[in-house]
Design a protein around this nucleic acid. Structure first.
Length: 386
RNA sequence: GCUGGGUUCGCAUAGCGGCAAUUGCAUCUGGCUGUAGACCAGACGGUCGUAAGGCCUACGGGGGUUCGAGUCCCUCACCCAGCACCA
């Protein structure tokens, strides 16, 4: 019973129509049809995406009938708003490939042997225009234009493609076809997911549920998203991952614990209670790396972080650069790809960011010497004569 | 097809005819520290010069007006909106 409670609360932003009813249904122990739809055009998964996968995984563990639905049909249609540029349509082979890379990452969270994988082109492709129109009858234009985002675009005079109106209907049809009981997705999908509820109710007279999952904030406190560059990717290497977690804002520590780890809630309280933010964050980073890589990787990453960041030691593995006698420091900085132009190298030196063998370099034309070159806080190179 | 708006540094934005060009985010450097976080300061086209400064390249493409054009004019391309046409 506790399990169900946690499942319906942790990281859950909203349950439609309501939490209690779903709880009652789940308590009956009935096997429910659950599904999550994903877009096969993006293959990289970050911790934010993982929140939803985590929820799906929990449902699968409880023995529900979980479908992981690949929205290949949506990808086939693509965004056709521009008629001249032939948008390369994803072939089914590419979609397969994409899914493979996706799965490789998602496996860290979700056990694919416990779920069914489906493709929505299977039924959407066959849908006739007549059937489509019938589905459309179940919705009103008012529903769509009252959506906040759509409303905003309308008032701003932005273009809204008619096909955009069809997306929720397609998604709703997926839901209908799968005879869904629970649909899982991010809160941004709430509207689309509700379309499924509408269709199931109208055409099957069955009540279904929408489980809207909370968003995870990115390392800078904004929503984690590809375009912001604030994401922690599931395939980040342990050191990067650890460091990125350390870089999150203090206020996000709790959110990360709850949404991005499987740590139980009591333990989270405990950790937060007796530790200062930095230690809590270290704990968090360790757990995340452990879950996504391994315990050993986490220990190594923690060690590495301590050494290189906190104690400012030179990392054990650094790049080697062969220098010819008489080369200048700025030339080497460029050769090591620490700067992309002479001006930039010069700038780094002027700002005091270049250290050669423990000594700060002040002259860009200083001759190089064999040893350790440090640029900024984290870039090192070992110099050796050719 | 017509009318209007737009195309500027990774993204987003500003830009009376004197501009290597604003601001925000991101990035980088320094300081500080609890960490590479937060905060503060600075940098952020290239190249030459120790420096002051010079030179080159850049505001969708091409052309023009001008001592001088991101800014004005013409033209082409693309994007967006509204209208019309098509029924």
């Amino acid at each position: 019973m506790d399990k169900i409670d946690e499942l319906l609360n942790r990281g859950v932003a909203n349950i439609i129509p309501n939490r209690d009813e779903l709880k009652r249904l789940m308590a009956t122990g009935k096997k429910l049809n659950v599904y999550l739809g994903i877009d096969p055009t993006s293959t990289k998964i970050h911790l934010g995406h993982a929140v939803v996968l985590r929820k799906l995984s929990e449902l699968a563990k409880l023995g529900h009938n979980v479908t992981f639905l690949i929205g290949d049909f949506t990808a086939l249609i693509g965004d056709t708003s521009d008629k001249d540029t032939e948008r390369p349509v994803l072939t089914s082979v590419e979609i397969q490939e994409n899914f493979k890379t996706y799965q490789k990452q998602a496996e860290k969270i979700l056990d694919f042997s416990k779920v069914k994988v489906g493709y929505n082109s299977e039924w959407l492709k066959k849908l006739s225009f007549e059937e489509t129109v019938k589905l459309c009858q179940k919705f009103s234009v008012g529903d769509f234009i009252s959506r906040e985002l759509i409303k905003k675009r309308l008032t701003e005079g932005k273009r809204i493609g008619l096909h955009e109106v069809l997306y929720p209907i397609m998604q709703g049809y997926d839901s209908l076809t799968l005879d869904t009981d629970i649909q899982v997705g991010g809160t941004d999908q709430t509207f689309n997911m509700q379309a499924g509820r509408t269709l199931i109710k109208e055409l099957k007279n069955k009540e279904s549920f929408v489980l809207a999952i909370e968003f995870l904030m990115g390392t800078d406190g904004r929503k984690m998203s590809k375009t912001w560059g604030n994401s922690i990717w599931l395939d980040d290497n342990p050191n990067d991952m650890f460091a990125k977690v350390m870089a999150i804002k203090d206020e996000l520590i709790n959110q990360y614990f709850v949404l991005a780890t499987n740590t139980n809630l009591k333990k989270i309280k405990e950790i937060e209670g007796n530790k200062n933010p930095m230690d809590a964050k270290k704990e968090l980073a360790k757990i995340i790396v452990t879950e996504l890589h391994s315990a050993k990787a986490a220990i190594d990453a923690a060690e590495n972080f301590k050494k290189t960041v906190q104690n400012k030691e030179t990392p054990s593995e650094i790049i080697n650069i062969n220098v010819s006698d008489g080369a200048t420091v700025s030339e080497i900085i460029i050769a090591a790809k620490f700067a992309s132009s002479k001006s930039e190298a010069k700038r780094l030196i002027e700002q005091g960011g270049v250290i050669l063998n423990e000594k700060r370099v002040t002259d860009p034309d200083a001759k190089i010497e064999v040893g350790i070159l440090k640029v900024g806080k984290r870039r090192f190179a070992k110099l050796a004569l050719e």
